[in-house]
Design a protein around this nucleic acid. Structure first.
Length: 835
RNA sequence: GCCGAGAUGUUGGAAUAGGUAGACAAGAGGGACUUAAAAUCCCUUGGCUGCUAACAGCCGUGCGGGUUCGAUUCCCGCUCUCGGUACCA
């Protein structure tokens, strides 16, 4: 018996789908469904760890298509970015050549898998026909006041040799390299994502089918907090110092105020203090700036220096010293905080180090706090003390009262602060979309009207970072004329963060060939939002937040009719494998030396085996380990299906195909397999809707195990039985096509069906056949399983009780006991409570 | 530290409007076929006890309590693991 020869079958069906144009996007969808997997950055070649994302998307796309939806299922490449540029520097290759070569490799590999993409919809972010529109979006944002330039202390990664957005700094290190990030004071382009902070927060509620963890991460990242700004006067300074606090209830506990060394007011302060103090402040500023982000933010020492000035406490009128300390962030709130050592850990540590006084204003419920002896700050609620007019009252009541009082007395105002900052998008690198702006000495910043602003030729620029942006090294590119006055001007030398490229690609797929516009609004509104987005959870606050922002911005500008890009989001777990380098399970990656290349895998096992393996191994949201045993098991299963059909093809192929049977006409054996088949169709339909691929595959295995028990002799003897078994295997194969499309199509065709499964669609199940006339009822005695009872479905409780008490097994256990109570759960169990 | 998710056989995992725990696989053991091996097929496979067996009993879903006729599922208190986060005042 020939084993399943995937080497012939898989290319054959890929060819059929291709030639029939099955996966082409319909122009005027009646029932649209947009399935999208996060597009890859093309680096090297695909390994099986990458596959999970694409396989899940393909199952969804095929399943929806079989159910009559008009599908948009595109693929493309996130093609600008550092790896290409680094490869260029290290190996002297061309960034563009390297990238396009990888894209070709990726596409070739993807074509082995039978994925249902419409490649006519492809987008490649580094191509001119794409990045000119990325530049166009930038200019649109600029026109609408959503892109601006400012000088700020920004995150600098020495490995990237460029600045990074806040979202790209994790725990003080670069998200890519893990190298410590330092601060640089540079003038850069920012996008006003903070303008949408409230919408981004509120609309999380609309995202019903997003993982809670992703929504939570975005919620925390936006970090909305309600508080009060309070002003402290300084007699010599001509302006007041404003602090932001969420704890105005601790106002009477203020014993100092701390200002961040980068806060601009520090410069004013320096003018008022004696030279010796000024020198100290400057030395401190230099020292702070030299620290890495980790050194500044890790739990370590809180350092500071006395500014030489004192402030007036707005309520007590007493003097409190003003300190400069780099534990205060210049970019959050006002960059100045009030020091309440008794009720804030950081202030407590600072006060202890510099021997500043501690005033207790909130007493704990045990009433045992004492400012002299406390060893840690009390940050919870409690009872007010040392607070005129509120002694003995609850701090939770006081917090509102004092906020109101501060506001009415004109000492400050209630306000809201966000942790979210504007998105810094300038990058001092070559391989990205140039920022399409011109700097003119006369006119200032002017839009370049000639898009695309092309990158200078690779051989004209110095890619290796040397304190200049690579684009600046091509003078002929850099120097241009001002579109406004015609005088000499310079181009903006930076490129855009590549997250900008990926924050709108899902829109371009809808109308990817439009050379006149970003996209046609009507077409975008037809296909979007994306119905099902699938990707890794690591993008929770990067790509997914930026994309939501860009969608909202384009909505405000009037280019799209929706406010959220992705209606449903599924985040798959990663594929792990034992790494010989680290000696443990690791995410599959080249650097860990634990990859299985897709090409090699498909040559040895075929695409369908890989698909079944990935879907069966574990629930898709969970991580799973890639194992040879798992692969072999998946392959064995496919071969069992193949063999079953081959063994019986002589009888099944000629048999008439009936789409439904009369239950009463079926023999018991026929009914059993017919029932199992329809239960399977029902279960698989439900499981695919819920992304429960692993249990769907298990259901197929169960049905196959039953089909394999088919008695060849009975089959030979009864034409009716042949028709039943044909019906069952056909239904099996039809609903199996989203999971293993090649083998399923091939066997359906061998069984006598012309065309493809898409000609027939998803079968409905025979509901009456999924239930039985009789059910097995469990007999429990005092909660313990003691026997079984076969009764008619929906038997009344009384007859079940009677049968249970008469049951031989039950009587054995009831000997010497008296029955106290009977609990009947219809069609499930009866519990006899006895003493 | 804080926030979130989780803990079920040798392993991946099933089963939760509370109702037969371990579906389906993997691995292991035994058998059939074969000169042999591979492949394939069949059987066994949570632990303990009853000398062995069919069989029977007891225990068993991280730990300790609780609610209930009945708890992997609900409640309270722990332990551990994995993610996320990191001076945001």
């Amino acid at each position: 018996m020939a084993r399943y020869s995937f080497k012939d079958v898989e290319p054959k069906w890929q060819q059929v789908w291709e030639s029939k144009g099955i996966f082409k996007t319909p122009a005027n969808p009646a029932k649209k469904y947009y399935v999208l997997e996060m597009f890859p950055y093309p680096s090297g070649d695909l390994h099986v760890g990458h596959l999970k994302n694409y396989v899940i998307g393909d199952v969804v796309a095929r399943y929806k298509k079989l159910n009559g939806f008009d599908i948009l299922h595109p693929m493309g490449f996130d093609a600008f970015g550092l790896p290409a540029e680094n490869a260029a520097i290290e190996r002297n290759v061309s960034p563009a050549g390297w990238t396009y070569g990888n894209i070709e490799t990726y596409k070739k590999t993807m074509s082995l898998l039978g994925l249902s993409y419409d490649w006519d919809r492809e987008v490649v972010t580094c191509r001119e026909d794409y990045y000119r529109w990325t530049q166009h979006i930038f200019q649109l944002l600029y026109d609408n006041g959503l892109a601006y330039r400012k000088k700020a202390f920004v995150n600098w990664c020495n490995d990237c040799q460029t600045v990074l957005a806040n979202e790209q700094v994790e725990n003080g290190v670069c998200y890519r390299h893990g190298t410590p990030v330092t601060k640089k004071n540079l003038e850069q382009w920012f996008l006003k994502i903070t303008d949408f902070a409230d919408d981004l927060l509120a609309d999380l509620d609309l995202l019903k089918n997003w993982p809670e963890s992703v929504k939570k991460q975005q919620f925390d990242w936006i970090g909305k907090s309600y508080g009060v700004e309070i002003q402290f006067e300084q007699p010599e300074l001509n302006q007041k110092l404003t602090v932001f606090t969420t704890r105005p209830d601790t106002i009477y506990g203020v014993t100092f105020v701390t200002i961040s060394p980068e806060q601009p007011l520090v410069e004013e302060i320096k003018k008022l203090v004696p030279d010796s103090v000024k020198k100290g402040i400057e030395a401190y500023q230099v020292a702070s700036k030299a620290k890495t982000e980790i050194e500044r933010t890790s739990t370590g020492e809180k350092t500071g220096i006395y500014s030489g000035l004192d402030l007036i406490h707005p309520l007590t009128g007493k003097k409190v010293p003003l300190w400069i300390g780099d534990y205060v962030l210049a970019t959050y709130g006002t960059g100045i905080v009030m020091g309440v050592p008794a009720h804030d850990e950081r202030d407590f540590a600072f006060a202890k180090r510099y021997e500043l006084p501690i005033i207790l204003v909130i007493q704990n419920p045990e009433q045992n706090l004492n400012s002299e002896t406390m060893e840690t700050a009390w940050t919870d609620d409690g009872i007010m003390v040392n607070t005129p007019g509120f002694e003995g009252k609850s701090s939770t009541d006081f917090i509102q009262a004092i906020a109101d009082e501060i506001q009415t007395k004109g000492l400050g105002r209630k306000t809201i602060n966000y942790r979210l900052r504007d998105w810094l998008i300038s990058r001092q690198r070559y391989w990205g979309a140039p920022i399409p702006m011109i700097h003119c000495p006369a006119c200032g910043v002017v839009k370049d009207p000639n898009l695309p602003v092309r990158l200078p030729a690779e051989n004209k620029v110095q890619l290796k970072p040397q304190g200049k942006t690579p684009l600046e090294t091509d003078e002929s590119w850099l120097n241009t004329t001002c579109p406004s006055c015609g005088g000499p001007a310079k181009r903006d030398p930076d490129t855009m963060d590549t997250f900008m490229c990926s924050s709108w690609y899902y829109l371009r797929y809808a109308d990817n060939k439009n050379s006149e516009k970003l996209f046609d609004t009507e077409i975008a509104n037809t296909w979007l939002p994306v119905d099902q987005y699938i990707g890794g959870a690591e993008h929770a606050v990067l790509h997914l937040l930026y994309s939501r922002f860009i969608t909202k911005a384009l909505h405000r500008i009037g280019l799209v009719g929706f406010t959220e890009p992705f209606t449903n989001l599924f985040t798959q777990g990663m594929v792990t494998m034992f790494s010989p380098k680290t000696g443990k399970l690791e995410k599959m990656s080249k650097s860990k030396g634990n990859v299985v290349p897709v090409g090699e895998f498909v040559r040895e096992w075929g695409a369908d085996t890989g698909r079944v393996m990935i879907l069966f191994a574990a629930p898709p949201e969970r991580d799973f380990e890639w194992t040879n045993e798992g692969v072999a098991g998946a392959n064995r299963f496919l071969n069992r299906i193949w063999t079953f059909v081959q063994d019986n093809l002589d009888l099944l192929a000629p048999a008439e195909f009936k789409s439904q049977f009369e239950i009463s006409q079926l023999t018991p054996d026929s009914f059993k397999i017919y029932q199992k088949t329809h239960q399977t169709v029902k279960k698989v339909s439900a499981d695919l809707n819920e992304f429960k691929f692993n249990t769907a595959v298990a259901a197929f295995m169960e049905l196959m195990n039953d089909l394999n028990k088919t008695d060849r002799k009975s089959l030979e003897e009864s034409e009716e039985f042949q028709r039943v078994i044909k019906h069952c295997i056909v239904r099996f194969l039809e609903v199996f096509t989203p999971i293993a499309p090649h083998i399923s199509e091939e066997l359906l065709s061998q069984l006598g069906f012309a065309g493809t499964v898409f000609d027939r669609g998803w079968p409905s199940w025979h509901e009456d056949a999924t239930v039985s006339d009789t059910v097995s009822i469990v007999i429990q005695i005092n909660g313990k399983l003691r026997g079984n009872l076969d009764v008619a479905r929906d038997s009344d409780d009384e007859s079940v009780k009677k049968l249970a008490l008469e049951n031989e097994q039950a009587r054995k256990f009831l000997a010497g006991l008296s029955v106290v109570k009977l609990i009947v759960i219809p069609n499930k169990l009866i519990n006899i409570v006895a003493k």
